[in-house]
Nucleic acid binder design. Sequence first.
DNA 1: TAAAAATACTCCATAGGTATTTTAT
DNA 2: ATAAAATACCTATGGAGTATTTTTA
Lengths: 305, 305
Amino acid sequence: MISLKQLRYLDAVARFGHFGKAAAHCGISQPALSMQIQELEAALGLCLVERRSRGASLTAPGLEIAARAARVLAEVRDISDVALAFSGLLAAPIRFGAIPTVAPYVLPPLLSLIRTRHPSLELRVRETHTDQLLVELADGRLDVLLLALPLANPDLATLALREDRFLLAVPPGHTIRGPVRATPELIRNDRLLLLEEGHCLRDQALAVCGLRRAEAIDTFGATNLTTIVQLVASGLGLTFLPEISLGLECRHADIRVIRFDEPEPTRTLGLAWRASSPRSADFEALGELVREALPAPLDPARPFP
Amino acid sequence: MISLKQLRYLDAVARFGHFGKAAAHCGISQPALSMQIQELEAALGLCLVERRSRGASLTAPGLEIAARAARVLAEVRDISDVALAFSGLLAAPIRFGAIPTVAPYVLPPLLSLIRTRHPSLELRVRETHTDQLLVELADGRLDVLLLALPLANPDLATLALREDRFLLAVPPGHTIRGPVRATPELIRNDRLLLLEEGHCLRDQALAVCGLRRAEAIDTFGATNLTTIVQLVASGLGLTFLPEISLGLECRHADIRVIRFDEPEPTRTLGLAWRASSPRSADFEALGELVREALPAPLDPARPFP
DNA sequence: TAAAAATACTCCATAGGTATTTTAT
DNA sequence: ATAAAATACCTATGGAGTATTTTTA
């Protein structure tokens, strides 16, 4: 008789292409996993995995069955999530992923909001790039993401929360005066400092300037906006800052921030979760909290700073 | 951790509304089932089943989760079926259901055809009414049905095989001569003998005569067309016979068979299976065999008999 | 009081661990 | 020679059985 355990192990083998790594991922020993895969093969009367001396790959039936197994496992995970949803709004832990250009500016107020408003809600936070977040969301390691929309994947539900303006950060002594027009020329005069490859903010900044990825100017990217801001303050170049970061980034760095010409470039911040998730009510409620936690937009009447 | 076993047991409790009967259906003892249900409830942190002194009923979360469990179980069953499909066309056993007004006329030639053409194919045959067949198909006890189309259920795939004429069977000495028109009056002069409630042929015959169910004339139905034919031969009334039954039914009974006026009333015989089944190729191949096995249609040039 | 589910306990099947061997490059 | 999976063997968890108790209508 087929068991979920066997399907979980097959899924792991499909992912890792390697019995040992799959076993480690499942928290069991390699022989234990081997045995279960063999039993599954016996139950189905088929060879699912081709054992090669450098790892394992799936046979044609194996691919088909692993794909179905993944669906079954997702549905079983949804059953657990249904149970969580029944236990009440925001009552169960939420595994929350956020991109690095949002997390530090939202989490402190968000967490304190949760502490006062929903003290029983446990938010497990993970910060990494969009691509990685999406992988972890898809295979159930995360429940909901805070990132820049739109996303292509139709299996995801999204909730737009707020537009986030981009601004140009320049050294304090810089001659430029705003509002400024975002053009390739603007960038070519000074060095544009950006986060390393993989950060969506990097791509968005390049796109706003009408540059392609390959046309990036900086030689070594950073992983941390604060690092970039320090470099800008030292006169090494200029950068794009999202509005929500200003409160934090301007506090300790001596930079000047200039608004762009209308229409000001922005990114859309929002939540995303698996469309099949039974906990959408939780995520929409969380979205409200995030919206409250996001730093207030610039006063349009009074140009910043 | 949730297991398939637990979902199977929950599904059984949902079906039977009774721990004891559910346990019997699963082939385990009542305490064993109780324990697994409790473990599932613990794993989900919810009460799924309301224990009442006359059986058990599901709570609201229980209903939701049982419905999802049923879907998971169906998909796991499909995984087994994928495996069967991969083992080759018509290579794995097929659980085959047929209605009583078709089975006896098709099975002998079908089984002999299978013996010669696909000796390794094991056909497990079940004969009962359409309604029961559909239930057993839906919950996986049967793989494919041979019955009268059309069917309402959109979750089923169907394959029409052949039109089957209805004919009027009368005692040998009866004065009626064909072709005859199917009207309520035709029936009112003699007693119309039909199968008992539940047989689709009964309903179809009544419909052909323009009668409603309640207007049936015979007092006690039979379960067996051969029985009806014997009664007709004894002059106790007349009946509708499907064309495919003539070879067998006319061999030993002294009746006369009369064709109806154009357009001759017919039923459509065909196969049905779960649309989600990964074995459709098997079922289509089986459909070809059934088509061959069905008795040849009447020669339109030479009026029967 | 009767029917149904829960509990107590016992047992054994099996999932999983460690150590080792086999296999293929 | 090395990496990877299979095999051998042992252990312990837990699933399932029987007997019994508790619960509720």
